[in-house]
C-alpha cells in the first residue's frame, strides 16, 4: 500500500518565534488588525509504501528523530492512503 504523509513542524509554543512576530507586525501594518499569534513553521510532504503498521512506526520515528528537533520544535503529521495520480 502507498501512503502520503504531511508533516507540520513549528517552534514550540514556549519559544519566541521572531519570524512569526515580524510577519504579524507586517500584517498589522497592512491593515489586518484582527491577526494575532502568527507562528511560522515548516511543511514536509513525503510518500511511503509498505504495511500500515510499519509505515506508521517509521513515520513516527523519522519525525521525532530527524525531521524535527524536540528541544525546540513541535511536530505533528497526517498519514493517508495515496490516491493514484491525484496531482500533476
Amino acid at each position: 500500500m502507498n501512503y502520503k504523509a504531511k508533516i507540520y513542524v513549528t517552534l514550540k509554543k514556549s519559544i519566541l518565534d521572531p519570524q512569526g512576530r515580524t510577519v504579524e507586525r507586517s500584517l498589522h501594518n497592512a491593515g489586518f488588525s484582527s491577526v494575532q499569534n502568527v507562528r511560522v513553521g515548516k511543511f514536509i510532504e513525503l510518500e511511503l509504501s509498505g504495511e500500515s503498521f510499519e509505515v506508521k512506526t517509521q513515520l513516527e520515528a523519522m519525525t521525532r528523530d530527524i525531521l524535527s528537533n524536540p528541544i525546540m520544535e513541535s511536530v505533528r503529521f497526517e498519514l493517508e492512503e495515496a490516491v493514484m495520480s491525484s496531482e500533476f
Partner: peptide
C-alpha cells in the same frame, strides 16, 4: 554538536533575524 546530542540545547534563529 547539539543536533547530534553531544551537547545539550539548540541554536535558534538570531532574535533580530
Amino acid at each position: 554538536l547539539t543536533e547530534s546530542g553531544l551537547l545539550e540545547g539548540a541554536l535558534l534563529r538570531n532574535e533580530n533575524l
